[in-house]
Design a protein around this nucleic acid. Structure first.
Lengths: 136, 136
DNA sequence: TCAATACCTACCATGTCAATAGGTATTTTG
DNA sequence: CAAAATACCTATTGACATGGTAGGTATTGA
């Protein structure tokens, strides 16, 4: 299990916002209802997206959230890396890991690195616009 | 983080056994020393490999473990799926998950499925023989 | 003034991970 | 036969992450 609900919910919120861009600011209450996700939990995820400049939040009546860029300018990779920390398949490749003394001769490290690269490329090749379209 | 130490250690044990096939049965004590892994922890991982027929274990003095196939006939994918359960990136794709009621219209499911397939193909394309060779 | 909203912090229950502890069963060897 | 070496088994533990919930405060529009 690599992607937790935090990253998955963040993606679904972004998709939901993309599907309602013309409606101005969207309250999370609506998104929570549509997506069947606890509002309280979403309220803990959204600040990550706000602080990193992916969405804009406006308080008060009539407030809510909206995307600050066009949906095609967000990649799934960007959103997942923010909410999940990173997409490293093993701890030694995580950005916050201390350097492994075995790395110079580790037989499996190239395999993990290759997978890591592939993972980032895969998710960076998918935009919120792609995900917002109805499925064929 | 997708792959835990269990899967990583299992791979390293298999590689170590592959690098010492000519020596008959290899005691885990030796592998633990070479790989700098706790013997007690390895002893909890090996039964998984034995029960699934990947390695053979012989008790008693002079005993140990050995591969039952040629190193090129094991894939990293096979070993990881055994020790990690499966390689599903999200819970809804895990084999032991109850069916998700949103699957028919979930906007992100195809992305996760595509990644799941890619993951399995990547690790199924790497054999223990590949990993046993010295790095270039 | 009130309602609706974002935003904030603390808390909690559950499960997994990574390992340790302390054995038993089996086999070879002296 | 005794001892050593090995696989094999089960219970326990501490740390941590996950997936929330609870209970607020701050801000804004009507």
């Amino acid at each position: 299990m690599m992607i937790s609900t935090r990253g998955r919910y963040a993606l679904r919120v972004m998709i939901d916002l993309a599907q309602h861009t013309e409606s101005g600011y969207i309250p999370m209450k609506e998104v929570a209802l549509r997506q069947e996700i606890s509002l309280k939990y979403l309220e803990r995820i959204l600040p990550i997206l706000v602080k990193n400049g992916l969405v804009e939040g406006v308080q008060g009546k009539g407030g809510g959230y909206r995307l600050v860029r066009s949906p095609k300018e967000y990649t799934a990779g960007e959103i997942l890396r923010l909410t999940e920390g990173d997409l490293a398949p093993v701890s030694c490749l995580s950005k916050c890991a201390e350097p492994c003394p075995r790395s110079a001769y580790c037989a499996t490290l190239p395999m993990w690195s290759g997978f890591f690269d592939m993972t980032n490329k895969y998710f960076d090749g998918i935009t919120i616009e792609d995900l917002s379209k109805p499925r064929e």
